[in-house]
Each structure stands twice: as C-alpha cells, then as structure tokens.
Nucleic acid binder design. Structure first.
Length: 644
RNA sequence: GCCGACGUAGCUCAGCGGUAGAGCAACUGAUUCGUAAUCAGUAGGUCCUCGGUUCAAGUCCGAGCGUCGGCACCA
C-alpha cells in the first residue's frame, strides 16, 4: 500500500507497487504519451521503475528543461551503439551528459576523426528511428564482470570492479545493444529526437589521469528540438565572432610570433588599451591604501627553494645560468617572495599593518605548450598583484575592503555580475593541518563578515593557503575566473616575516595574496570578447576618426582632429579619396567607436556629423559641443564627476 | 606534455605528383562622391623548417617547430 502525492497536491493510493508508466496512464492518456521519466522523491528515475512506498512523484516531459540531461545521456548511448556497430572491436568506457551536450570515450585505434561523423550520425539516426525501448536489468556483480570481459570490454569490467560493494549493478539494453549504466533513461531511443549533432573529437585520458592511456572522445550536442539546436549553434558562432584573436587583428592591437612563443608583441593601439586599464587601476589602488613597488625579474633559485615554489613548480620556471657566477637564476613566476623581501628588510611594527604592497608584476611561467591560447594563456604576463601583510584579526576587515574595490573595478570595466568560489586545501600542500584549519576558518569568517555568498570549490586552494576565486559572467554567459584572494600563513613562516606586536613580542603577519584582473593579457582578451571589440569610449584605443566626404573639407577635417587631440581624445584623420560608404565600412570593421564625418556643409557651418559605431543615424553638432561630449564620455570612470 | 586536425600572398582560402591560384588588403591611375565595399591596372610567394622517396614534391613519407580543438596543467 503506497500513497503517491502528485504536484497538484492530489494523492493516489495503490495496493501493489506501481510503475511510472502505470501511474501516468492512471492519470491520463496525454501524460502517458508525454512522460519520458519521473522524479520520485527528488530522484530522477525510469518510468519502468516501480514505486512501492509513499512518495512524491512528478513526471518529466519534453517541456521540462531537465529533460535535456536525459536526452543527452541517451544520445551518448545511441552514439556508443552506433560506433560499436560501425567499428567492431571498439571498447566503450564512459559517456555522460555535460553542459550543452554529451560525449563518449572509446578505446579505438586509430582515434576517430570528424570524417567518421557522417556515417556515425546516420547510424545514430537509424537507432533513434527504430525507437528501441531502454530496458533496465539488474545483474550480479561477478556475472556482469564476466559478461564484459567475455566481450573484451575491459574498461567496463574495471568500472564495475571499482564500484562500491553495495552498489546495484544495472545494465541498460536498447534493441540488440547493452551497456553498463546507472541510468536513468527515457522510454526508447526515439525519445532522443533528431536535434543532435556530433561536434568534435578529442583525446582524453582514461579517468582523467595523464598516466593512463588516451582514449578517443567524441563530443556531441543534443537539444529538445531543432530550434534549440540552431540557437546553440548560433551561440557558438557568436563565440567565434567575438574571438579576441580575430578582433585584435582587425583592431591592430598586438601579435604573436614563433620566435617568442607565449609572449605578446603589443602594437601602439593595443598598448594604449593596456595603459588605459593600468592607469585606471593604479589610481584605484593609490586611492585604496596600496603602495606600489617593483621587484626583480631574475631571482636566485635559493629564494624559490625557501618559498617552496622550486619544489612544486620548478619544472615550470624559466631559469638562467650565469657564466662567471655559479648560480641559477629564475625568471620570477610570481611576486610574493619578492614582496616578502621588502617586508622583512627591516623590523616592522604592528602600527604599520595592514601593509599593502602592490605591483604590476611581470611574470614568466613555462606553461605546457598545449595550454597556450591567444593572449588568454601566455608564458609572459603581468599580474595586478598585491600582498597585504596584516594580523589575523585584520583579515575580515581587509576582505571587506578588497571586495569593495574589486566590485568597483569589475563594474567600471563592464562586468556588473560575478560569483565567488571558496577553494579549500588541496591534497598536495605546505603547512600543517592546524595552520590550514586556522586559515580556512579565518577566510570563512571574513566571508561572513563581508556578507559574501560563495560556493565551495573543494581541493582547489593554492599550495600555501585557501582562496576565494572571483568569477565573472560575460555578455554571452561564459564564466571567467579572474580575481582571487588567498589567505597565507605559510609563506610568512617560510620566509621568516615578523613584526613587533603591541606587547613587544614578535609575531608572524598573515599574507593576503590578491588580484582583481588576474593577468592583464588574459583580462584584455576577456574584455575584447565581452564587448566583441566595441569597447566603451574610455577604453577604445582609437576613439575618433575624422573623415571627409570631399577633399574640399580636408583643411576643416584637420581642424576637427586637432580639436579632438586638444581634448585628449585619440584621433586619426582619413582624407583618402574613397567614397564615404567605403570609409565608414572600413573604420566600422576596425571597431572605431566614433566617426566624425565632415563635408562642405559641416565645413561651412563649423559642425561635425557624429556617427557612432553600428548606428544608422548621425547627429550633426557644433564642433565644440561634439568634442566636449566625447571628452566627457571618454573620461575614465574614476575621474568622472559624481552622478548628479 | 598527450590525442587529433591544420600550416600556401598582409588576411580568408583553393590547388593534393608535372610551369604556384582566387577574393579582399597593398600600390598606381581615374573618379570628389553624404554614412558598411567606385572603376581600371600593377605588384606581391624559401608553398613552416630539415631530411627522405621520385625523372619530377605545396602535393607522398619521416622528424622538428608552430597554430587550432580537446585532455592534463594553471603558484
């Protein structure tokens, strides 16, 4: 006897266990057709599973967004069946649903390539059209292992061996094909629908461990209908359209070349953008009690040994040997040990704390070749780094203060929304468990004091301390981890930093490592993609182009350009003998925010036609007024008069 | 670093054993034109590098370098 409560509040009672299918039919034929799975007391299960106790039950149909996970998981099974049918001898491993799609990892030599997609996709569509029911079977552990080993599926057998002893081993059958799977699945392969597409292949280590064999992964995407698939593909096209590597070439910002892999050649306009951000941030830091410092690029290895970086990251440091001196220098991969040197240079008093040392620190890291990506991941980069030396009691106040600064900077740069993650102790770490307990507790309390809501990111802390990670959301919904705040009790100990407390005793300061942008290079890449190249006027490296309609206006155009320059705007003049259409097009493609178009009319009247990037209309204004407005808009946010 | 794909003119790409191509950009000339491509002409290439196969190699093979997509990494 079970009582089943439905979403509308009604309760149905059954004397015997009832399956989802039965229940749906009992409620109505429409639901019986539409349901693909159900949620029993919060757990998604197959419609074929029986309910034998009191429960709250809700059905999932194609209308529910959560059906996407089921479609994608089922699609992964369909993919695996198709692949095994077409490529006998291929071993299956795992194939989960992921954000926007699914993948399946196969052991197959040679690895699959996109050329294999058309036949695989065609086979998948056959399997979907066949509407084979998914049938769940419970197996004995030993039998299941024997079954997969007999089939030559050693990965599957391994998976079963690693499952906890009490885990129920379930297999799902679809037509003639069967796979180890926890489920749940929809009713038939037909429920996958037709809105799916294989996207790309990739190598992926078995169980994500680089010591294991590499498997051949096939990624796909799957949606409820063609319209959703199309809009997802459109989103991908948008990502490509915004690619900072393409846009920065159009804007002539920088380039990369083989002779300096992972280092940026900043062109004049790119460097202008860089400096706009740097000066803005420098003013914000100056105003917030930071003192800027500059520390060496090349530092003897002994310092890195003391700090612990040599042991953990030595393989990723660039080193230099000097011919006459017997020493190894390392290009600094980060700034904290150097900042500690400034702190420890003399005896410090508690009165000096918190001491905030900031540096736009140029760092080099020998990143693995496969990690490099445009200017987002490079080997030479500059951090907006700072270290706050303070007492344990000051951590909370400093956290609040930092959060305020960070929010302001993100807002000014066009990222009003960000999330916070709390990354706690990693497996490999420096410092005792007691130290970590204290550091994590201090950071948690600081978050509470600053009213910061965070999600946990387990095991992802730095080797010397727990950290907060600040994750930006961009205009098309992507996440970018940029800022960080790390609590460090370990480095002051290792590098012997201390101060004299009020009572005359010597104490260890706490170090807070913090950054807002992370790396300038990466952040500028993110910024370009966020704005798709259409930077706000104050950041645009080339703000204004004055362009003529007829050559009679050349002299007047020069006057206009000088007026812009005098107002501090970055301006170029375009007197080329081209049609205005062509000039508008070219400067638009270079993402120049403002075109001041002048012809005979403007020259005579002393006006300019202001054409904003992407706008169809222009506004004709007196020159002085136009320049005044643009200059006001081009002012850095921190230099603008407070809003009235 | 690992797996795969790719590397041809400034950019985007075609050519896949037999005399290096196109569009755009550049340059020259004509055109003076009102808001996203005016017309004509000219010039431009160690086909990533090194080695091999071949009468003959962008083209086939090998190694290296780099880029791209994942994986792993990210102090």
């Amino acid at each position: 006897m079970s009582a089943i409560r439905l979403p509308d509040g009604s309760v149905r009672r059954f004397d015997a266990p009832v399956t989802g299918d039965d229940l749906a039919r009992a409620i109505g034929p429409g639901l019986a057709r539409a349901a693909v799975a159900m949620v029993v007391s919060g757990r998604v299960v197959d419609l074929s599973s029986a309910i034998d106790a009191d429960a709250e039950v809700r059905f999932i149909t194609r209308e529910d967004p959560e059906v996407l996970g089921l479609i994608r998981h089922d699609a992964a099974h369909v993919l695996a069946e198709a692949v095994q049918e077409l490529y006998p001898g291929t071993e299956v491993t795992i194939g989960p649903a992921i954000e926007n799609g699914f993948y399946y990892d196969f052991a197959h030599e040679p690895p699959f390539t996109p050329e294999d997609f058309p036949p695989i996709e065609a086979k998948m569509r056959e399997i979907v059209a066949a509407r084979a029911p998914f049938v769940r079977e419970v197996w004995e552990r030993a039998e299941a292992i024997a079954f997969f080993e007999a089939k030559g599926e050693k990965y599957k057998a391994d998976i079963i061996r690693d499952l906890p002893e009490d885990e129920t081993i379930t297999l799902y059958r679809q037509g003639g094909w069967v796979d180890l799977c926890r489920g749940p699945h929809m009713r038939t392969t037909g429920d996958v629908g037709t809105a799916f597409k294989l996207m790309r292949t990739a190598g992926a280590y078995w169980r994500g461990d680089h010591r294991n064999p590499m498997l051949s992964r096939i990624y796909g995407t799957a949606w409820r209908n063609q319209k959703e698939l199309d809009s997802y593909l459109a989103m991908l096209a948008e990502v490509e359209r915004r690619d900072h590597r393409r846009i920065s070439r159009e804007m002539d910002l920088f380039h990369l070349q083989d002779e300096a892999v992972g280092s940026v050649f900043w062109h004049p306009l790119g460097w202008r953008l860089y400096r706009a951000i740097e000066s803005y941030l420098r003013r914000r830091l100056d105003a917030d009690g930071y003192q800027e410092v500059r520390t060496p690029q090349l530092v003897d290895r002994s310092l890195w040994e003391k700090s612990g970086h040599w042991e953990k990251f030595g393989a990723h440091m660039f080193t230099a040997e000097v011919a006459d001196e017997h020493r190894t220098l390392a290009l600094k991969p980060m700034n904290c040990p150097c900042h500690v040197q400034i702190f420890t240079r003399r005896l410090r008093s508690y009165r000096e704390l918190p001491l905030r040392l900031a540096e736009f620190g140029s760092c080099h890291r020998y990143e693995p070749s496969g990690a490099l990506h445009g200017i987002m991941r490079v080997r030479a980069f500059t951090q907006d780094d700072a270290h706050i030396f303070c007492t344990e009691e000051q951590i909370a106040a400093e956290t609040i203060r930092f959060m305020a600064l960070l929010s302001t900077v993100y807002r000014d740069l066009g990222f009003p929304a960000f999330e916070v993650k709390f990354a706690d102790r990693p497996d490999v770490r420096a410092g005792s468990d007691e130290t970590w307990d204290r550091a994590e507790a201090a950071l948690r309390e600081a978050c509470a004091a600053a009213s910061v809501a965070y999600t946990l990111n387990p095991g992802e802390g730095a080797f010397y301390g727990p950290k907060l990670e600040f994750v930006l959301k961009d205009a098309i919904g992507r996440d970018w981890q940029c800022g960080t705040l790390q609590v460090d009790f370990v480095m002051p100990e290792r590098l012997d930093a201390e101060y004299v407390a009020e009572d005359g005793t010597r104490r260890r300061p706490v170090m807070l490592h913090r950054a807002i942008l992370g790396s300038f290079e990466r952040f500028i890449g993110i910024l370009i993609e966020q704005y798709a190249g259409r930077l706000p006027l104050w950041l645009a490296p080339l703000q204004v182009v004055v362009t003529t309609i007829v050559s009679d206006a050349d002299a007047y155009a020069a006057l206009v350009a000088r007026a812009c320059e005098a107002a501090g705007l970055s301006v170029q003049q375009d007197n080329r003998n081209e049609k205005i259409n062509a000039k508008v097009r070219e400067w638009s493609l270079r993402h120049v925010p403002v075109l001041l178009v002048v012809g005979r009319r403007e020259a005579e009247a002393g006006t300019v036609a202001v054409r904003r990037l992407g706008a169809a209309e222009q506004e004709v204004l007196p020159l002085g007024k136009a320049v005044g407005r643009l200059a006001a808009e081009a002012r850095s946010p921190d230099l603008r008069p407070a809003a009235a």
